[in-house]
Design a protein around this nucleic acid. Structure first.
Length: 564
RNA sequence: CGGGGAGUGGCGCAGUCUGGUAGCGCACCCGGCUGGGGGCCGGGCGGCCGCAGGUUCAAAUCCUGUCUCCCCGACCA
């Protein structure tokens, strides 16, 4: 255990000028991390202690569900990725390089290819199943925009585990085991968290959950209602109803010169934005056009749209819109010669909507879906504040994704030939799941969630040290002799301690202790010594209490356990 | 990739418009004082002014190019 005079803890008074996120500022100020380049960070000793405490918690819970720790390489032959289709499919995020023989290599952003390749040769029989394999390994992802220090970096350690099962039911069991392990992990780390249903996306999975830690620096928006939590990417909710003017016998043209936005048209007509319909043409891979129509106060959700269309799509170019429909800003579903998908929040019986007329400077009013255009119905919009779930209004808050679990199915085992022989001797494809956790994000999320104006306030289980021991005595003083002894006794009592015996003033020592944020600060000074007691401050809430000198170390250990 | 901003000592900044000895606060080193909330006094160390080219008697400052980093958005197993 370190004495601070010998330790490397470069604290700063000022945060880096370009830091925005609280965790970024505090991790640098507290001497936990330093930047090397964009999205590349060094963990300094105290920061790494926290990282490794998180890792140890994850390890224990993975082992508890039968996971087996291993280690796969960061650098991987491109051949594997070409076989899985992800050499191109992963996109620009994949770091690619060549070795001296000019062979294509990649730096692994994840390890499905490698682990599945092993499984294909190592798992041969139904008797070998199920298996859960995991490792902590550095991941490399050439992020288009790294941000907020370790919250989104280009290189980071991830725990990734992979389950192998005989069938879909087996996968469900492995998945549930992970879900339970994850619950314990995030609880033990002291985070505020919840799990949400996630986009299974282009990976073609069978189910996925994300573990979210709410905090201001979060990059995901989560929709919440009592008993409901979902990433806004996939969230579904009841839309607030909107006051519509009465339907007309037939659509009627309205002159709307230069009014290309919803706000302009609704303003000019004195209507709510939701009384208008917005139209977004998209193009499918077969080059057919689909017109997506949502309420004027709603936005198309691309993830949900992809799901509803059952295929990828691209936005339409301006000249295509002009050619197929009309001038951009004035397009609408009436008379459109293409497939129309109408969002479910649009009611066919509520009155008359206003839509673009597909002619310059003109809209139509009194439009009734079904009567005036033919459509398919689907939920393709993003939820907004004001929507309800089960009658409860939605809350939307930012969160950091600290982990996820994903039912892969046979997507990798199929293409990489991972199969086993069943009891009847028939070859069967392995069913797989993959499960990730980012220890760095857990650390950053904990900072975000619990920091106060004095600095970090770690959850006890992942603090760099359990106790921050501050001595105010000069070398040779009685106070110093006592604190030296206490330092030994704290360790004997099973606590980790950082001992600030620097030749510095009390204000500086207290400020550094509160910045670093260990759960307990113990102060030894003349004042307390004369009173025959020690001052112990609980970092969170900064409540101070006095403990008798006699038997102080075990009492501090008890106090620490109470916090945990 | 689109938009915006910034590169001057370890950190935070001024100086650039109007070219002329590279500065301030903190940190750091030495000495002394102080000793329960970033204390005080004195003395110091430390800078290819991101890089390259150009203009000029002279460039941190003007011109051209380039690199890097940050923020917002797009993107994101």
């Amino acid at each position: 255990m370190p004495r601070l005079s010998e330790y490397l803890l470069p604290t700063e008074r000022e945060p880096p000028a370009d830091a925005e996120a609280l965790s970024h500022k505090l991790m640098v100020r507290a001497g936990l991390i330093r930047q090397v380049g964009a999205g590349l960070w060094t963990w300094l000793p105290a920061g790494w202690r926290t990282h490794e405490r998180v890792v140890q918690i994850v390890r224990e819970e993975m082992d508890a569900i039968g996971g087996m720790e291993m280690l796969m390489p960061i650098m991987q032959p491109a051949e594997l990725w070409k076989r899985s289709g992800r050499y191109e499919g992963f996109g620009e995020e994949l770091f690619k390089l060549k070795d001296r023989k000019d062979a294509d290599m990649v730096l692994g952003p994840t390890s499905e290819e490698v682990v599945t390749t092993h499984a294909s040769t190592v798992i041969r029989s139904y008797r070998d199943l199920p298996k859960i394999l995991y490792h902590f390994q550095t991941k490399e992802r050439d992020e288009p925009r790294p941000r907020a220090a370790v919250l989104r970096s280009r290189e980071f350690v991830m725990k990734d585990s992979y389950s192998f099962d005989r069938d879909r039911e087996g996968l469900d069991v492995s998945y549930d085991k992970h879900a339970r392990a994850y619950d314990r992990i995030f609880d033990r780390c002291g985070l505020e968290w919840y799990s949400v249903e996630a986009d299974v996306g282009a990976m073609g999975g069978f189910g996925a959950h994300e573990y979210m830690a709410p905090c201001p620096a979060g990059e995901n928006d989560v929709a919440l209602a009592p008993g409901y939590a979902a990433n806004v990417e996939v969230a579904a909710a009841e839309a607030q109803s909107v006051q519509l003017p009465a339907a007309l016998d037939a659509p009627e043209a309205v002159h709307t010169p230069g009014m290309t936005t919803v706000a302009q048209v609704s303003g000019a007509l004195g209507l709510a934005d939701g009384a208008l319909l917005k139209a977004f043409p998209v193009v499918l891979p077969d080059d057919s056009f689909v017109l997506i129509v949502v309420r004027g106060d709603h936005r198309v959700n691309e993830v949900k749209l992809r799901l509803a269309l059952g295929s990828d799509f691209r936005p339409t170019r301006a000249e295509e819109i002009e050619q197929r429909l009309g001038p951009p800003g004035f397009i609408g579903p009436v008379g459109a010669q293409m497939r129309i998908v109408l969002d479910e929040a649009v009611r066919a019986d509520a009155g008359g909507y206003v839509v673009g007329a597909n002619r310059r400077d003109e809209h139509l009013r009194g439009v009734v879906p079904g009567r005036d255009f033919v459509y398919e119905s689907a939920d393709v919009r993003s939820v907004v504040l004001g929507d309800t779930v089960g009658g409860h209004p939605l809350r939307i808050e930012p969160a950091i994704e600290v982990g996820n679990i994903f039912k892969l199915g046979t997507r990798y085992s199929d293409v990489l030939g991972a199969s086993y022989l069943d009891q009847a001797g028939a070859s069967q494809t392995l069913w797989m799941g993959c499960y990730g956790i980012g220890p760095a994000r857990i650390a950053a999320a904990a900072i975000e969630q619990f920091a106060d104006d004095r600095g970090i306030s770690w959850p006890p289980a992942i603090a760099p040290f359990d106790v921050h021991l501050v001595t105010l005595g000069k070398p040779g003083s009685d106070e110093r002799a006592l604190s030296d002894r206490l330092y030994e006794e704290l360790q004997a009592a099973g606590l980790t301690a950082i001992y600030d015996e620097r030749d510095a003033g009390p204000g500086e020592k207290f400020a550094d202790a509160e910045l670093l944020g260990c759960p307990l600060r113990v102060t030894v000074g003349r004042r307390t010594l004369q009173a025959g007691e020690l001052e112990v401050q609980v970092r969170r809430g900064q409540e101070a209490r006095a403990l008798p000198l006699e038997g102080a170390a075990p009492a501090i250990a008890d106090l620490w356990r109470e916090l945990g």
